[in-house]
C-alpha cells in the first residue's frame, strides 16, 4: 500500500510539473505586486524624477538629462558628506564586528550567566534608533557625568563625529555578537581540543582557529552593517541633527534634507539613485558571498 501511494505521489508531482500550473503564481501574486510597486516602480519614479529640475520653488519642471548627476559630482557638500559616510560606516562596521566577535567568543566559553550577558548586549539593538539617539544625546550633554568627563563632546565637530561612531557601535555590537554566536555553535569542538593538545594557548586558538572558521559569517555581518549604516538617518537626527554645522551630515542625511526640507526633488532623487547604486553593489557582494557558502539556490 505504502509503495503504491508513494509511486502515485511521484506520478502526480511529475504530471503537475509537465502541465502549466498557475497555483504557485497565484500564491506569489499579491506579495509580488506589493513589493514590486514599492521597490521597482518607486525606483523607476525616482529615476525619472532624477532627470528633471523638479523643485518646489520652480513653476515649470523640465527634463535636464543628467544635469543633477553632473551637479552631484561637483557638489563639495555632497563629496564631503560621502567622505564622512565612508569613515563612519567603515569605523562602525570594523568596531562592531570586532567587539561582537570577541564577546561571542567570551560567551561561547562557559561564562557564568551567559544568557543574561547576551540579553544585556542585545538590548541596545532592541531599543529603537531614535530612543538610542535620545539616550546618548542626554548622556553626552556638557553637564551630564559623561559629558563632563569628555568636555561636552557633541559641541565640537570631531567630538560629535566620534560620539556618533561610538553610539552606533554601541547599538550594533549585539547584532554582530548574536550572528557570530550562531556561527560558533556550529563549529566542531574537537578542533579546539586538538589545538589544545598541540599546546596552543587560548589567545592563539581564538585568532588562528575560531576567527578563520567564523570569518564567512563575519563578512556577512560586516556587509549588513555597512548597508544599514550607510542608510542611517534617524539616530543622527536624534543625536546631533547633522551638526555642529555639518560635521555629522552623512550622505543619507543630506539626501533626506535635500528631498524633504529643501524640496529639491530632482536633485534629491539623483542622490537617492546614487545611494541605491552603492547599496546594490554592497548587496551584490553579500549574494556572492552567500553563493560561495552554497546557501543560495
Amino acid at each position: 500500500m505504502a509503495a503504491i501511494a508513494a509511486a502515485s505521489g511521484v506520478q502526480q508531482v511529475e504530471r503537475g510539473r509537465r502541465r502549466f500550473d498557475a497555483f504557485p503564481y497565484l500564491l506569489l501574486l499579491p506579495a509580488t505586486i506589493l513589493v514590486g510597486s514599492f521597490t521597482v516602480l518607486a525606483l523607476l519614479f525616482t529615476g525619472v524624477a532624477s532627470l528633471t529640475d523638479w523643485d518646489v520653488s520652480r513653476r515649470v519642471t523640465s527634463f535636464i538629462g543628467l544635469g543633477n548627476y553632473a551637479r552631484a559630482f561637483k557638489d563639495a557638500e555632497l563629496l564631503a558628506s560621502f567622505a564622512r559616510s565612508s569613515t563612519f560606516v567603515l569605523s562602525v562596521t570594523f568596531l562592531s564586528t570586532l567587539i561582537g566577535f570577541l564577546l561571542a567568543v567570551a560567551l561561547n566559553r562557559n561564562l557564568p550567566g551567559k544568557g543574561i550577558v547576551r540579553a544585556l548586549v542585545i538590548v541596545p539593538w532592541v531599543i529603537s534608533e531614535l530612543a538610542t539617539g535620545v539616550f546618548w544625546m542626554i548622556l553626552l550633554q556638557p553637564d551630564a557625568p559623561l559629558g563632563l568627563i569628555f568636555g561636552g563632546p557633541l559641541r565640537s565637530a570631531s567630538g560629535a563625529f566620534v560620539s556618533l561612531i561610538l553610539v552606533e557601535t554601541w547599538r550594533s555590537v549585539g547584532f554582530a555578537m548574536v550572528m557570530t554566536l550562531a556561527a560558533l555553535q556550529s563549529v566542531d569542538e574537537s578542533l579546539y581540543e586538538a589545538a589544545k593538545v598541540d599546546g596552543a594557548g587560548a589567545w592563539r586558538i581564538t585568532w588562528l582557529i575560531t576567527l578563520p572558521l567564523v570569518s564567512p559569517t563575519l563578512l556577512v555581518v560586516a556587509i549588513l552593517l555597512m548597508i544599514g549604516n550607510f542608510n542611517l538617518v534617524t539616530l543622527i537626527m536624534a543625536l546631533t541633527a547633522g551638526g555642529p554645522i555639518s560635521a555629522t551630515t552623512t550622505t543619507a542625511l543630506l539626501m533626506y534634507q535635500k528631498s524633504f526640507q529643501y524640496f529639491q526633488i530632482g536633485y534629491g532623487a539623483s542622490l537617492s539613485i546614487l545611494m541605491s547604486i552603492v547599496n546594490v553593489i554592497a548587496m551584490g557582494c553579500f549574494v556572492l558571498l552567500q553563493r560561495g557558502k552554497g546557501a543560495v539556490t
Partner: peptide
C-alpha cells in the same frame, strides 16, 4: 522562480529611505 527570488532579494537591498521620495510624491 529565479526572477522572483531576485526581486525579493533586490528589495532587501533598497532600504525604505531611498524610495521615500517617490513614495511621498505618489
Amino acid at each position: 522562480r529565479a526572477t522572483l527570488l531576485f526581486l525579493f532579494m533586490f528589495s532587501l537591498t533598497i532600504p525604505g529611505l531611498v524610495n521615500l521620495l517617490a513614495v511621498y510624491q505618489v
